[in-house]
Design a protein around this nucleic acid. Structure first.
Lengths: 258, 258
DNA sequence: GAGTGGTCTAGACCACAGG
DNA sequence: CTGTGGTCTAGACCACTCT
């Protein structure tokens, strides 16, 4: 299954050579997604090295996210999940007018079952960065809406929205279910016609909490997306802080040439 | 400097405890950016463990990007690099008309010295995905331009552009230096006024080659950005495949509400 | 219980940086 | 040359999974 040997005379450390052999076996498809790698004992015998060396090799592949180790079971080739594409026009008004939230509309297009859980809605004092983005004074009161999205049972992203309290109070936005079209529909009903969205994209390694919430494989990064919604008068009406499993998403955008 | 001991009776592995102690010393500021950690020998004595255990602890911090090891010198606390912000209008025509490339214009705004190296320019057959994006038949001839960008000597991104050969041949685009305003200026001179850019953003762990080219800390992800440039007739005129060190960038975009 | 990965030790030798 | 990190061995014991 994994042929070839190691060259102790080579400059390249043995553990990297073993990692190379395993990696190319995976890339060739000799080891498919979900399949188990040879055990440590077997690799020790096959390449004539000590356990520590095998562990270094496998450790490399783990840090690359190519494989995942399951204690007591084995080391497995990671299944590459299907990518979800976030379209440039995903917040277009026509989607809201159809009564669908952006996530629902996208799930429908991708033919997966969408689910939202861990919904928490409460007023709070804005953190400095959120207040800055919303153009509010430090510590201003905001409505916080946090939730987790799942597709076919797999967590894909967590999101936390912040809405100025003056805008949210007394509306369905303070309810767990804000009604058809989501909070953007409610914001527009309250007289703030949406004008544009600004998004900032970063990527980083997840915190331990995020690993749990998104069921991330060790060594897999997240995409951080902070979106600010502005009305037609360029007043910030919402900030949404999203953390996505990087492996599941492609974000697409359009840039002007002028 | 780093006080406290390890608890061999604890459930938490000793190497993780040592990593915790060092990490919190760094977070507290007892070990500042650029400072050297105690040597392996010193840590072995201090915590009464073998070299392997110390190496595991330091390995954890390295994979988190908290420290970097320099062979023969020591292990150092990593300085958190400044973020580079890519603006939504970074390809606006006014920047090209000022004779500056997008990277130069941005470097100037950030007050860093920009440098480009590893430039390779050659014709080749397009890979399937590139041909698809350019709307060419499979295996069509394209001009390939690859290069690496550096700011203040630090590699920040690699980029590879693909331009249909019919469009590039006989123009300064086939030269190493395509002249003022970069290849977008040349494309416009050849009669293809640029209309829009489409960008697709992904994040993932780097390949070993990318770790080298971008001098990435182990465990730090990259942002992949594939941009397709279209002229005003919606003809694809260039595809640019960029790999950026995720720690150095914030990408900002605008989305329409309509 | 058998097989798997996870942690740790004690010691060896190598490669690189700097005085 | 000394001190640093990098690689490797041989062996031990533990924790988890499956049967």
């Amino acid at each position: 299954m994994v042929e070839g040997g190691v060259d102790t005379a080579s400059d390249r450390p043995v553990y990297k050579q073993i990692a190379d052999l395993l990696r190319s076996a995976i890339e060739r498809g000799d080891l498919g997604p979900g399949e188990r790698l040879p055990s440590e004992t077997e690799l020790m015998k096959r390449y004539g090295v000590a356990q520590g060396t095998v562990r270094q090799a496998v450790g490399l592949l783990r840090s690359e996210g190519v494989v995942v180790a399951e204690h007591g079971r084995g080391v497995f080739v990671r299944a590459r999940p299907r990518l979800r594409r976030l379209a440039h026009d995903r917040f277009a008004r026509r989607h809201r007018e159809a009564g669908k939230s952006a996530y629902d509309a996208e799930a429908e297009a991708e033919k997966v079952t969408a689910l939202v859980d861990s919904i928490r809605v409460y007023p709070d004092k804005a953190k400095d960065e959120i207040a800055r983005r919303l153009g509010l004074r430090k510590g201003a009161k905001v409505l916080v809406r946090s939730r987790r999205y799942l597709s076919d049972g797999q967590p894909t992203e967590t999101a936390t929205s912040y809405i100025p309290w003056d805008l949210a109070k007394g509306t369905p936005m303070v309810e767990t279910n804000p009604g058809p079209g989501g909070i953007y529909a409610r914001i527009e009903e309250s007289g703030h016609r949406l004008g544009r969205f600004a998004e900032e994209v970063t990527a980083r390694m997840p915190t331990p909490d995020e690993v749990t919430a998104l069921r991330l494989a060790p060594g897999s990064p997240v995409i951080g997306l902070v979106r600010t919604a502005y009305d037609v008068d360029d007043l910030a009406v919402e900030v949404c802080d999203t953390v996505m499993s990087a492996e599941l998403y492609v974000l697409s955008y359009e840039l002007p040439a002028t």
